[in-house]
Design a protein around this nucleic acid. Sequence first.
DNA 1: TTTTGAGTTGTTCGA
DNA 2: GTCGAACAACTCAAA
Length: 487
Amino acid sequence: MSATIVWFQLDLRLDDQPALGFAVAAGNAVIPVYCLDIAREGKWAPAGASKWWLHESLKSLDASLRVKGSRLILRSGDTVKELMALAKESGATSIAFNRRYEPWVREQEEALQTAAQSRGISLHRFESSLLFNPDVIRTGSGLAYKVFTPFWKNCRSLAAPDAPRAAPSKITPPTQWPSSLELSDLKLLPNKPWIKGLADAWTPGEAGGAANVRAFLKQAVGDYSVGRDVPGVRGTSLLSAHLHFGEISVRRVWLATQTRMSDETKTFRDNADKFRAELGWRDFGYNVLSNFPRTANEPLRSEFKEFPWQENAAHLRAWQRGMTGYPLIDAGMRQLYATGWMHNRVRMNVSSFLVKHLRQHWLRGAEWFWETLVDADLASNSLGWQWSAGCGADAAPYFRIFNPILQGEKFDPQGDYVKRWVPELKNLTPKFIHQPWNASSEELQMAGVELGKNYPRPIVDHVQARNGALAALKMCNASRGAALDAE
DNA sequence: TTTTGAGTTGTTCGA
DNA sequence: GTCGAACAACTCAAA
């Protein structure tokens, strides 16, 4: 019996897994493999919190495979070499995998193609991690989209994404298993007590992802348009990391949402559509990254290359540690460090604060998020940071600068979120919870807050920082005008 | 080819 | 307190 290697990447599931489905349907023995290839992914290889998640997810995938009579082979190093070695060792004659869209993928696929061809191994590539194939979504003039609304409108006008397919009931093992590393050999677990907080907050793996899908569709989705903006409540789907690692199929989520929508009110459907548009943003991010690969490291709008970013290690560190003196910002940064995740409303605020108030390069923010987020995803991270900095696709206009006090009062009016993550402020009244420096000394004393001692004073003044950012951004716009005039 | 309308999430100021 | 305008000009995408 011939064997098919199923090369797992960001598709760590059995449900609606086209490469696995193909191998099983072919009636072959199946050799599931994951290869950790840190060198290939370079700067944007899995780091920090993502590595912890990956470790847990691989463990979970192996357990799921064993229930089906199979297991997961682990390798490390250059993927093309490892896959070829594995094929030789096992006698496999075909390799099936689901496609990725990162900048380095094209080169890797070419190398794989060359190597496989010379050995008579057939390759089978599938689309599975997006709703719509970024090669296909094009404007009327055949270009890639740079604006979300027309992009999404176009997507929605097309046929619905392919229906998901169920997990195979049985996976045929090879007569003999090829060699495999132990999970611990991949050295994915950081040697820090830090991971305890991640483990308390999340259940990586296909079952954990499915549980979050069910919980979201049962409850929060019906009030998503409003609820998603309130960081103190569970109003979002909590699916980002599960989607990133492909533990759940985005097409499965799409279909489940549709099924849930079919017998509900218009209000419900509008809320659910809002959520679906967020899945659309995930697709859009990959669309931009796939068509403009340089945006992982460079601004899409090239005039921003000249932007006068400031370097201030103390400011960067205060931001990372949640010690800026702005409660909403600090709560977000501490939630991030403690749980590997931050609420979206707060992500916008902390990123605006870093790139505008502190005028630090958006890459510094992207790098910290990359290290600390369990859902770190190159497409979403690049798109998000460039959106915040104003230098990306469909980016925020330069004068859109979040006011962390106002945002706190608007979206966390009672200070529930701040109190959870910045406990030294928990006895402040809602009136001052987002601006403790404006409280009277009696008020502060009553709440046990000593500014500059157990909670920092603001590291920058909002009005001053805002004006500084506006001036710098205006200059950037002006320099672009000059550059265009010179052409 | 040219024209037209629009573009995720905001803030501030003055009436 | 509430509301509309200004904050800019440009690029995008479809008509």
